[in-house]
């Protein structure tokens, strides 16, 4: 492989890694605080859409912020329903995913007047280093490392994890269970929104009606696969990114290996992992269970 081709391949891997990594790290933060959010797919999609709108009006930075902001809002909605109203954790996520499946194609037609996809103009795209390297993958890696550090090396992380493991214990020593959960979910969903923004106004440069293409669910798989650890998620996301790029290359090279079957791999691996075949993964013990007092 010529040097430039290798570089292009590496950039491809990094780009493919980024949305999955951001989303998975966000969900790890939320689930470590005990809240499960399966609406990530929808948040990525709506984040991508909002980012495109904002970027076309106010530039790429505004676009990224819009992705984060919309993600945070959807996270807040989830937090209100789960942490404060003690509702079920899974249903709102299904709702958000369904909403996104309607909202994004609807807005493509209504706002951009195009059915199916809209190309983001150059001025609205995140500027690239050396013409084709985005800064975002490096920011995502930084975020993953920072999330790991905060979760496992600081008192704040200790508090957050205690809420997901045993909210009674956390409550007893004065940790505000609901508020901790709300903050974690909002931050987590904001990262998924950022992932969406990256996809539309950076990596792909196009907003399509199925832009997430299952990445929200791959991220969910990665959360489990990584044993709720952002550093493992980084490794896993790199692996997925490599597969993703490789399958693009394989398609180009006509090797005859069906990429549709390769696509099942992350899910199969995750199922094997949760079944305890590859050693044990240990979810936060109170994840997904509403916390009620007395």
């Amino acid at each position: 492989m010529p040097e430039s081709a290798a570089l292009i391949f590496a950039v491809g891997v990094l780009n493919a890694m980024t949305p999955i990594l951001l989303t998975a790290v966000g969900e790890i933060i939320a689930e470590r605080a005990g809240v499960v959010n399966i609406g990530l797919e929808g948040i990525i999609m709506i984040g991508a859409m909002a980012a495109t709108m904002a970027a076309e009006g106010f530039g790429p930075l505004a676009g990224l912020l819009a992705g984060i902001g919309v993600g945070a809002l959807l996270g807040l909605l989830h937090a209100v329903l789960t942490a404060y109203l003690k509702g079920d954790h899974v249903i709102p996520g299904i709702g958000v995913n369904t909403l996104a499946l309607g909202l994004v194609p609807f807005m493509l037609i209504v706002y951009w007047g195009s059915a199916g996809q809209h190309t983001v103009p150059r001025y609205a795209q995140v500027p690239k280093i050396a013409g084709y390297i985005s800064p975002m993958p490096f920011i995502a890696i930084l975020i993953a490392v920072a999330a790991w550090y905060i979760l496992f090396k600081t008192p704040t992380g200790l508090k957050l994890r205690s809420v997901g493991e045993n909210p009674v214990a956390a409550d007893t020593v004065g940790i505000l269970v609901e508020r901790t959960q709300a903050v974690a979910v909002v931050v987590g969903a904001a990262l998924a929104g950022l992932a969406g923004a990256f996809m539309s106004i950076d990596w792909l440069g196009v907003l399509t009606k199925e832009i997430a293409a299952g990445r929200g669910f791959i991220a969910l798989a990665l959360v489990v696969f990584s044993n709720w650890n952002p550093l493992w998620a980084l490794g896993g996301a790199l692996l997925f990114g490599t597969f993703d790029s490789l399958s693009q290359w394989l398609k180009v090279l006509h090797t005859g290996i069906p990429d549709t079957l390769i696509n099942t791999l992350p899910y199969v691996v995750t199922l094997i992992a949760v079944a305890g075949v590859l050693g044990r993964v240990q979810p936060p013990r109170h994840a997904g269970i509403p916390y009620r007092r007395e």
Binding site: P155, L158, S162, E165, N166, T172, V173, I175, Q282, R285
Partner: peptide
């Protein structure tokens, strides 16, 4: 007991304290 089972004894003791007390 209301401890966090996966935390160490030390972590359980300091859980929730403001950093100035650590």
């Amino acid at each position: 007991l209301s401890l966090v089972p996966v935390f160490t004894a030390y972590e359980n003791i300091i859980l929730g304290l403001p950093s100035r007390m650590l």
